[in-house]
Design a binder for these strands. Sequence first.
DNA 1: TAGTGGTCTAGACCACAAG
DNA 2: TTGTGGTCTAGACCACTAT
Lengths: 232, 232
Amino acid sequence: MKSPIYVKIVEDIRNKISSGELNPGDDLPSETTLCNEYDTSRMTVRKGLSILSNEGYIYSIPGKGYFVKKPDYNKYIFVYDEMNNLINNVDKIELLSVDIIFPDEELAGNLQISKNKKVIMIRRLFYTEEEPMAYDIKYLLYQRGVPIVENEIENATFPEMISNRTSLYDLNKELIIYAKVPEERTKKLLHIYDEIALFVVEQKLYDIEDRPIGLGITYFRGDYIKLHGVSK
Amino acid sequence: MKSPIYVKIVEDIRNKISSGELNPGDDLPSETTLCNEYDTSRMTVRKGLSILSNEGYIYSIPGKGYFVKKPDYNKYIFVYDEMNNLINNVDKIELLSVDIIFPDEELAGNLQISKNKKVIMIRRLFYTEEEPMAYDIKYLLYQRGVPIVENEIENATFPEMISNRTSLYDLNKELIIYAKVPEERTKKLLHIYDEIALFVVEQKLYDIEDRPIGLGITYFRGDYIKLHGVSK
DNA sequence: TAGTGGTCTAGACCACAAG
DNA sequence: TTGTGGTCTAGACCACTAT
């Protein structure tokens, strides 16, 4: 029933911040002051302040003190995986092609390689309930000695595809999303006969030193996908 | 030049995890074992483990030990604000209307209110370089005594609009994004003459108890917006 | 020089898991 | 009963900031 002292400290200060009693830029009482206020040791006070700092409420400047931070009210967390979204999940995948190609200007720039480096191109079609819902292209740096296992490629998400050469813990990723009108070729692939918008997701993978590993572009039928994000 | 002991502990264990020497589900040495390995005190070991835990590499179970966590390789962080995106920023805003309305079925459901509760509807048009780039509608719960300051409404992002009644620290938010073909009315507003897709962002605001405060829908011209997200 | 936060110690007691 | 992590103490030394 009784909660730790540091939780009490966290709650008190958090309340003061969200109620407006403490405002962004204001300084907090010093650690020793809080030790006296809560009749506890410095390590306990620091544990509480460390939590508030991790939660983004405060920050500290050595030699000066703790200060209230401006809230980050434009940040959202999205869970994205080309196979699953808010309104439809992929239940069948057709592997259209796997090729070794030389990149054009744009792709070479994206992958930060010269145009004579080989690139693996994988094209797939995603289905849901027998209907094509997305056309997917991945470009991966070609690496000698790292075999392409078609079976694995066929059903893998992009991070999974490269998990045999880069640890998923070390992978940096980037998404760019936008809407666009489909071209004729894409309309055919996705069985689009009426006017339907495309929802495009470009996914870039980088290694731990931020060198590009791969580029993926997924063209979703606009009526088959919604992405969802939350603050906190 | 010399770094703290806990940093060394963090780096060592993080390396073991990303190199594959330690795998998801594996257990780590106990705190006392690490105390001996690094010839340091328990609080120092715990500081290191606490950082790894915050970074999502490990978790602990009281009485059992520390374990390696599966990486969260589908998570992305987006910074969204209806006024600014990867390719265009809003530089002029036209306030189309501010009305008090009664919600239809759908809106009442979204805001979790009955249909006889008043709702404020704000319609705006966003411009960039004299071109309309987005049509924006906000629905806010009507609160007696909280005045509508047109001047503030006109230029505010959604979280800013309600910052006088709910602390930005306590605000929970949700985004739903999708692509769609514009209706005739929207095409006129956004000066769309060719075929152009719409990029739609629905933004829901909740108070700290997750009660809805407002719903915003922004219809961007597809050629004027790209959103950007990163892992980590 | 006095005050601040950052690192660290060598103990302690507790609740909980497992054998 | 032993080992684990969770909480907490009462000190210490350091580097940095402000006066």
